[in-house]
Design a binder for these strands. Structure first.
Lengths: 193, 193
DNA sequence: GTCTATAAGCCGATAGAC
DNA sequence: GTCTATCGGCTTATAGAC
């Protein structure tokens, strides 16, 4: 491994990601991020134009890892298509039972910034969810499902619904209910029935 | 009508509700609420112990009206059970197309206060969603559906999912997709099939 | 590139008069 | 019950030295 240590910028984003996810965007000050990153605020502002810029970098950094995780859970599961989709929800429920779980960072950031519709972080969040939806639509289309796009939309509704509901009630079993609903909808859409 | 004018407390809650919903909890200062209510901050603090107290009053005030609206949409629709449930989503899509729509106040508040798990406002939000779920479960049970409770949970997942997704993408057609998924799940659960 | 120091203003909440 | 005035602290962001 050639890259043994993180750049200053990566250090900052890592500290920001940890704090923003755990506490929320508006609850965390730039001072707090700088301190957690082990530097002064002035140095942080040398690498980032503004707090909004930092928020965007935080979400940007979670885009690919999150997508890869969902794909991994899907591919590591044996069974039919419905079972593979349901596995995503079952794995998510396991993760959501950890005390440090605080919902979906993309959705929470969107909710916090709902009064700033054009904010870069919201655009990044929307693009992230669209990528996941497009991947599902492709998987469904390859399985011969007619309305693959519509089914993928319904999966996203159940996924983001489970993030919201589990955060509200602190009851991860809702994710398993979402998985059952998702599997039912996939099976109903499978060809040759 | 005997009660022609609002009490001071009601005036404050109305101003807070308007601002908190439009801008978010942390983005709105107590000063701004007092000014919108036409009084000084000191007067506001005479009627409310703290900002947290005011946040709780805001959500408490939306509990019954929101539930009544959902019931009204359900009951005003002709057709089978699935059509009546789907009507809730269709009506919600219509509302969500207004420019001033900013998602679900309960869910957004929960997301903003995710770092304060025991906050009174979160408990009020959780209770609100549970009331709606319990009402649906009762409706399903009366229709002779076996796993009425599980089906009600799935409806809540689709409902709250549509709040989150539509807020993110600003595309209300996701609510119609949620309605179609909900109707499909209800029909699959109906007895005598 | 990283530091110390500080600007300029907003925050929730309170003192005390009337 | 409502007011004026203000406290002490925290906010994002910047000036200027090294």
């Amino acid at each position: 491994m050639a890259k043994a240590q993180k750049s200053t910028r990566e250090t900052i984003v890592a500290a920001a990601a940890k704090l923003f996810y755990a506490e929320g965007i508006r609850a965390v000050s730039v001072d707090a991020v700088a301190e957690a990153a082990g530097m002064t605020k002035r140095t942080l502002y040398y690498h980032f134009e503004s707090k909004d810029d930092l928020i965007a970098a935080y979400l940007e950094g979670r885009d690919q890892p999150n997508l890869a995780l969902f794909r991994k859970w899907f591919e590591a599961t044996d069974g039919d298509l419905a079972a593979k989709v349901e596995a995503i929800f079952v794995n998510l429920a396991r993760v959501a039972r950890h005390p440090s779980w605080k919902g979906c960072g993309f959705l929470r950031t969107t909710a916090e910034l709902a009064n700033m519709p054009g904010h870069p972080a919201i655009r990044i969040g929307a693009a992230h969810k669209k990528k996941f939806e497009a991947w599902l639509a492709q998987v469904f289309a390859e399985a011969g499902i007619d309305e693959a796009g519509e089914l993928a939309r319904q999966m996203l509704l159940l996924l983001d619904g489970s993030f919201a509901v589990v955060l509200l009630h602190r009851d991860a079993s809702y994710m398993e209910s979402a998985g059952k609903a998702a599997a039912m909808l996939v099976r109903a859409a499978m060809p040759g029935r």
